[in-house]
């Protein structure tokens, strides 16, 4: 797929960084939708990037490491988790895809505030009304270790969740929640099986709420909380369309 010369120049200007805020936002949205445009921006960025070599290093007043360390994944213990076996290709694919998504701790009020390292992954431009498969990767932040993959078929309102790199602490269980202002307090979608796929019925909830909701995981006693989360979520994410 080739870009029109005019589009390539839009990409050039976006890479240079001279766009006013509104045009910069439009260019970013376009790059998120159109891989060809994103690639063109990246090519221009690559052309200009050596200019950074000429920028003098400056020692910051405060070391930024502690704040960064608090926001990245702990090192994976013992390499890839056993749960990822047989799904290796997809695991990697999702990780790579995640790395292009913007991670942001979004304002879910007290809920988000109580998430120590929780990061909600979402895509900036989610085409609404594009029926079919939606997917969310529930993770603690960072692309290296997605913990659960959730997929939702909006037509049948069926949710499937599969742990990818998650093992509940000894004597505990993971419980899945759907959270949306339209639904009131978090609604339990049941306890997630330790392995394999667990399915959950979303028919009680409206399509818009299902599509917009945050899906979160809490740690509960075996068998589940009984209806109210007993603590802050350890994983949370919003749905994004599954584009392949």
């Amino acid at each position: 797929m080739t870009l029109l010369p005019e589009d390539d120049l839009d990409a050039a200007e976006a890479a240079l960084g001279a766009l006013p805020a509104d045009e910069a936002a439009a260019a970013a949205a376009r790059a998120a939708r159109e891989p060809a445009f994103a690639a063109a921006v990246a090519r221009w960025e690559g052309l200009l990037a050596p200019l950074n070599e000429a920028t003098a290093p400056v020692t910051p007043d405060r070391d930024t490491w502690p704040a960064i360390a608090a926001r990245i994944d702990p090192p994976a213990a013992g390499g890839r988790p056993a749960g990822a076996q047989g799904q290796g290709a997809q695991f990697i694919d999702l990780s790579r895809r995640l790395s292009r998504w913007r991670g942001a701790a979004v304002g879910l009020g007290a809920l988000a505030a109580s998430m120590a390292v929780g990061v909600v992954v979402r895509e900036k431009t989610r085409p609404v009304g594009d029926a079919g498969e939606y997917v969310a990767v529930l993770q603690t932040g960072g692309a290296a270790s997605p913990a659960f993959v959730v997929s939702v078929d909006l037509t049948t309102r069926r949710l499937l969740i599969r742990p990818v790199a998650a093992k509940a602490p000894e004597g505990k269980a993971y419980e899945l929640w759907i959270i949306d202002p339209r639904l009131g307090p978090p609604k339990s979608l049941g306890v997630v099986g330790a392995s394999g796929v667990t399915s959950s019925d979303l028919k009680p909830y409206g399509e818009a709420a299902v599509a917009d909701a945050t899906y979160a995981i809490t740690v509960e006693k075996p068998g589940g909380s009984g209806g109210t989360p007993s603590g802050p979520p350890v994983f949370a994410a919003k749905l994004i369309p599954f584009d392949k």
Binding site: T64, I68, I72, S95, R96, S99, G103, G142, A143, A144
Partner: peptide, 11 residues
């Protein structure tokens, strides 16, 4: 930026 770099390192 470093948080993004960590996340995108594979790219």
């Amino acid at each position: 930026a470093y948080v993004k770099i960590w996340r995108r390192a594979a790219d």
